[in-house]
Design a binder for these strands. Structure first.
Lengths: 336, 336
DNA sequence: CCGGGTATCCTAAACGTTTCCGGTATCATT
DNA sequence: AATGATACCGGAAACGTTTAGGATACCCGG
């Protein structure tokens, strides 16, 4: 900037004014300064700017795994908003490891990011509590912490679990296996609660041995089937934590010559784009991924702009998308 | 930091030494300072650090669309490396808009990111040339620029196009439709070249009207089928720019009662995870996505560490993955 | 007791901006 | 001609670290 100042004959101060579109500067000099800056190939050093002003116009985004289409859709919503409101994003994937998450939080704080969007692992909550304590602008996305005063946006998971299970029951299923994620995660917890409620409402006893818990990658779904259905467990319907697990499970079922949905109906969760293309097309619970990302950003922005002091909890509606994987052909009547 | 210094009785300098694990400090005082920093909840201000030292330990990643599984896998490789080598990532999705890409480059330069990993739109090359001119550490990932002295890592696209087309020919296809992306993109260009070469080698005349160009989302694949096959164009094989386009195309074919592969065989590109799960499972050209991200990062790192002065061009091998979507049942013999 | 080496710490400058405060011209008004 | 307002610009401090270059205390061998 000093170079530009020298070359233009104005002071550094005036150069700063020109570069930042400040008032109190003649159009002519501004134009001249900008032109010289251009010529010289000047690039402002944001780090230096940040030393005086506080705003970084960066927000930190911490998610489990952006190669999971669910997260990548949410991320897309976040990015859309960030572009719109002129923020940048530092992205950290935690690979569902709490250690990575904690580290990410502290590194992002060092960067003085303006705010944080976190899809937490939820194995630990200490670092989140620390953020609250510091009053660091943060929005939890896709998860819910009990008894914690922090902004959150997540889906109506209990209802999602209920819808999926209810649908399977409607299709004539009675022995419904739940392939769930670890229960410290609020979605696992709440979907399971919905599952339980739906069973109860239908007068079907809730059997904990029909809840299989594992990680939530396709291979986990595959393995889960090997450990349950393939070992002779009587199952006529499966409700999977997400579509990806369902894909793995479907593969395992096909590999072992079970017919979907004739032998076993299956329902996923998230409604990722690919669910309509697999075979058979997967019934699933649709959640508003893009909106979730976008609204999360909005909530954070409101907080940053001081428009809101109270913590806010936003719950997005879900919707059951019925496809072939669960459409029981009643006439074949091989269910209990 | 001044607070920590005052409270501990040491100078700011010593606090800095403790925080950065520098030598010339007694273990005892280091421990004491770290403890006080902990108590006080001190978080270092990276922006200030950066003012003196140059390294930001951030690299900027610019890609077309991280919700595309291809890019998200590459991104995963990049992230994996970044975690390993202790860098952070600022991610910018361009949504395939040059405008966004140019803006991203300049913003990231303001942030003084240590280097750039770009999957460029390739509609324009001015901003890339500017980077070269500034000698800004940059690696182009997944694309190739003709006559440009810049580090690049990309796949052997010509061979990929050749393999896919050759395979379709081997299956008895003679009227092979290419659903390609815009030709300013090097992969489009090169895959098409492979397609041409394979046809030529088989003695099949190359017919430009069999190359359909559009954007590369599923809906583009869907529409492409409506505009070609559904209008009566004789086609017995389709080679798609990527798997996603293939998914859209397959949907359109199914909706219009074409059988895959009996009526029309189809081959995709990228080998995204979902290709094995759609129906019928999609034959595709596999490219080493994770490795591409990882190696791109490595190349950048080498450049950053000054280990390498000359520009480097790395081409990764591809592999044809044969699945059901292209397995022609010769006996049905309804091909030309 | 002294020179020199080592371990540990400190002072002050420097990084590249932004902000606070004030200064000079210019112009209209009395 | 003096006054006040306005438009434009500059000087210098400040932001929170790192780094360069000592300074001090202690220990060693001679």
């Amino acid at each position: 900037m000093a170079d530009v100042a020298k070359k233009s004959g104005f002071s550094i101060n005036t150069v700063s004014r020109a570069l930042n579109n400040k008032p109190d500067i003649r159009e002519e000099t501004k134009a001249r300064i900008l032109q010289i800056a251009q010529e010289i190939g000047f690039v402002k050093n944001r780090s230096a700017s940040l030393l005086r002003s506080v705003e970084t116009r960066i927000i930190g985004v911490i998610m489990a795994d952006s190669s999971n289409p669910f997260y990548s859709e949410v991320l897309k919503g976040i990015e859309w908003a960030s572009r719109k409101f002129d923020y940048q994003i530092i992205l950290v994937n935690t690979e569902r490891a709490t250690k990575n998450e904690i580290r990410a939080v502290s590194l992002l704080m060092e960067r003085r990011v303006d705010g944080l969007l976190i899809g937490p692992v939820q194995e630990s909550r200490k670092h989140i509590e620390d953020l609250i304590h510091r009053n660091y602008p943060t929005v939890i996305v896709g998860r819910h912490f009990d008894q914690m005063e922090i902004d959150e946006i997540y889906s109506d998971e209990i209802n999602g679990g209920k819808l999926a299970t209810q649908h399977l029951i409607d299709q004539g299923c009675r022995k419904i296996l739940l392939l769930n994620g670890y229960s410290y995660k609020s979605p696992s917890h709440m979907r399971q609660e919905g599952y339980r409620q739906a069973l109860e409402a239908a007068g079907i006893p809730y059997d904990p041995s029909y809840v299989h818990i594992s990680d939530i990658l396709p291979e986990d779904g595959y393995r889960a089937i090997l450990h349950t259905v393939c070992k002779g467990m009587p199952v006529d319907g499966i409700f999977c934590y997400n579509d990806i697990v369902a894909f793995g499970a479907m593969q395992a079922l096909k590999d072992n010559h079970y017919r979907i949905p004739e032998d076993i109906a299956i329902v996923g969760y998230d409604d990722i784009q690919y669910s309509g293309w697999v075979y058979p097309p997967l019934t699933t619970v649709s959640i508003q991924k893009h909106r979730m990302g976008f609204e999360a950003f909005r909530m954070l922005l409101n907080r940053l702009q001081g428009k809101r002091k109270k913590t806010q909890r936003k719950i997005l509606p879900v919707e059951l998308i019925v496809r072939k994987s669960s459409l029981h052909l009643q006439k074949e009547g091989q269910r209990v």
